[in-house]
Design a binder for these strands. Structure first.
Length: 463
RNA sequence: GAGGUUGUAGCUCAGCCGGUUAGAGCACCUGAUUGUGGUUCAGGGGGUCGCGGGUUCGAACCCCGUCUCCCUCCCCA
């Protein structure tokens, strides 16, 4: 007999019934909102060809991809085996791809598989195409608070239009979902990739917006002097750093920040375009008149994914130490790498696992009794069990969630079962009940019992 | 990838300076109650002390390695 203790891969979790009802509450809320805004569902396989996945997430992202070993390598031909050995040795020292060893990987997000789907089905798809997708993704990150190796994303994307209305509606959906879940204190940070490019250009360091953001992002944490130092370490000239002065002192309303940036962007057309786009998105959001938009312009918002080209979003919940719970942005050329240029898209994603953690920590889950069974039939022997079956069927036909204790056990055990499952009603069936035709209905909350007919039972128990 | 931390029953954790048979609470099972749960009482089952090695007469405890948990940085959902 094996004594091996069962275990779970790092960064993965089971979700028991109590967790699942809470998770489903989140999934249902998100799904309903997506559908309300006109999005249709899509599912794609857990695994994709590596050619689809690699090169889409930047260097960091590629390193975190889970690659799947080709099946049955031991059955390969000898010549292939030699190639495998060589490639494997190379893999031990460099991060290389080897089709003889691995050609598939687990999906890293839902956007790239979506882009692949769009390209492969371009003739059937009616544009603009709005789809939502709720599936797990995998990343070989080291797990920590709010970070898992398997987690769900809930994506909604629109492709085939560059209308900024899509961006505005994303802001609306973020607001709707979070407020329905009871998360009231949060910020939707918004920026535009073109503004970042503009700043890098204006400062005389085009193409270095990534380094720029990483450093500027730390302004609050480590102070201005250290940020400037870090910028120089990252290869920015003294002159460039000095030109960043206005960026460092950015504050106030969007209009005020826009003014400062406009001056900076005198020589950067890209920067001006970014500002203009952002302004329009802000305007469109306002036009929906939803009250508090939670929207905040943040020049330091960068986001790692390399495919964003326009607006970028990130949502941060307040009062909890958990990373962003939602994020997204516009990508002008995601399908371009699959040979279908000129399709602009914008999308975003909710991180259910993090939303769950936030809600748990802030105690936001409704106190509802999540038990689904309403009535349990308990019985004393085989004859009584058989007697309950047509009654059970009748209750179910009336839409009442009900079950019968499947074996003839002690009543104590059956009641204990009902109790631990928080089932509110138990119907006792034994020789007395079968003789009289009246059922004993027990209310588990207050402990009372009464004799009832089937009709009375249904009436008493129905919601 | 860098750093810190943790691992003892199903769960939460005690276990002193190395000493004889490793404990508690909760949970579970049985009985008091052969047709009545959530209260009470009595009893019971459960452990390769993360794994491998070392020191020692003797290791849960000390040393080395390794894995794992959680956390920070980086990055992200």
């Amino acid at each position: 007999m094996s004594n091996q203790k069962p275990s779970l891969p790092r960064g993965t979790r089971d979700f028991g019934p109590d967790k699942m009802v809470k998770r489903n509450f989140i999934f249902d809320t998100i799904k309903a909102t997506f559908q309300k805004f006109g999005f249709m569902p899509l599912e794609t396989p857990a695994m994709e060809n590596l050619s689809v996945l690699t090169g889409k997430y930047g260097e960091e992202g590629d390193q975190l991809l889970y690659k799947i070993l080709n099946s049955r390598p031991h059955e390969a031909r000898d010549s292939e085996k030699e190639k495998m050995r060589q490639d494997f040795n190379r893999l031990l020292t460099q991060n290389t791809n080897s089709p003889v060893l691995t050609e598939k990987g687990l999906r890293y997000d839902l956007t790239v598989p979506f882009a692949r789907y769009v390209v492969m089905n371009r003739n059937e798809i009616k544009f603009p195409f709005k789809r939502y997708q709720i599936q797990p993704v995998w990343r070989g990150d080291s797990p920590q608070k709010g970070r898992y190796r398997e987690f769900y994303q809930c994506d909604a994307d629109v492709v085939g239009t560059d209308s900024l209305l899509c961006e505005a509606e994303i802001v609306l959906m973020m607001n709707e979902v979070l407020s329905k879940l009871g998360i009231k204190d949060f910020t939707i940070k918004i920026n535009n990739r073109k503004i970042l490019t503009g700043i890098a250009e204006a400062v005389g360091s085009p193409g270095k917006e990534g380094d720029l953001c990483v450093a500027i992002d730390k302004l609050d944490k480590i102070g201005r002097e250290k940020v400037e130092k870090e910028l120089e370490e990252r290869g920015f000239s003294r002159e460039s750093v000095e030109k960043l002065n206005p960026v460092f002192s950015l504050k106030g309303s969007f209009a005020e920040q826009k003014k400062v940036l406009s001056e900076l962007f005198a020589s950067s057309e890209t920067g001006r375009k970014g500002l203009e786009e952002l302004g329009q998105v802000m305007q469109l959001v306002e036009a929906f008149e939803i009250g508090n938009t939670h929207l905040e312009f943040d020049t330091t918002l960068a986001r790692g994914l390399s495919y964003y080209t326009g607006a970028i979003f990130e949502v941060k919940a307040h009062h909890v130490q958990i990373g962003s719970i939602s994020g997204g942005g516009r990508y002008d050329n995601l399908t371009g790498s699959f040979g279908m240029p000129g399709i602009s898209g914008v999308g975003f994603s909710f991180g259910v696992d993090r939303i769950y953690d936030v809600m748990e920590e802030l105690n936001l889950f409704p106190q509802n009794n999540f038990t689904t069974t309403r009535v349990l039939f308990s019985h004393f022997d085989e004859a009584a069990l058989l007697y309950t079956l047509p009654l059970l069927k009748q209750l179910r036909e009336n839409g009442i969630n009900s079950e019968v204790y499947p074996e003839a056990g002690k009543l104590k055990k059956q009641l204990d079962y009902a109790n631990s499952k928080q089932i509110p009603f138990v119907v006792l069936v034994g020789s007395d009940e079968m003789a009289s035709g009246k059922l004993t209905l027990k209310n588990m909350q207050i402990g009372s019992q009464q004799q009832v007919t089937l009709e009375e039972l249904i009436k008493a128990v129905i919601l």
